[in-house]
Amino acid sequence: MDIYERTDGATVLVAEVPGAKSESLDIRVDKGVLTITADGRRESLGDQYARTYTGFMGGQFFRAFALSDEVDRDNIQASLSDGLLTVTLPRAEAAQTRKIEISDG
């Protein structure tokens, strides 16, 4: 998984979920913890196919992250393409830099 911060302050998570369909994905935020589950299991080719070499087994994916208060939890977006899941965590309005005006005393 890659995690990077964009110039607009949003944090982007990129996870490899080969074999997973979008309907098998479950992304949720509960008590400030973001959990990502995906299912990459596929139907086997059948008994007539013998495994000559095995380098990977399709499986289930799970990862959890505690979110900071700086993440706008209501506007989290996710997309899936080519077995790559991208979750965008925008920066909350309250966490943006603000200039504080000094009032005349």
Binding site: L45, G46, Y49, A50, R51, Y53, G55, D82
Partner: peptide, 25 residues
């Protein structure tokens, strides 16, 4: 790990090679 991971199957009439290449176009 060695990239990409792959599987090789030997079927009755064909061989099947699978590679995990998430994110590769």
């Amino acid at each position: 790990g060695v990239y990409p991971p792959l599987n090789v199957y030997n079927g009755p009439t064909e061989l099947v090679v699978e590679c995990e290449v998430p994110g590769v176009k």
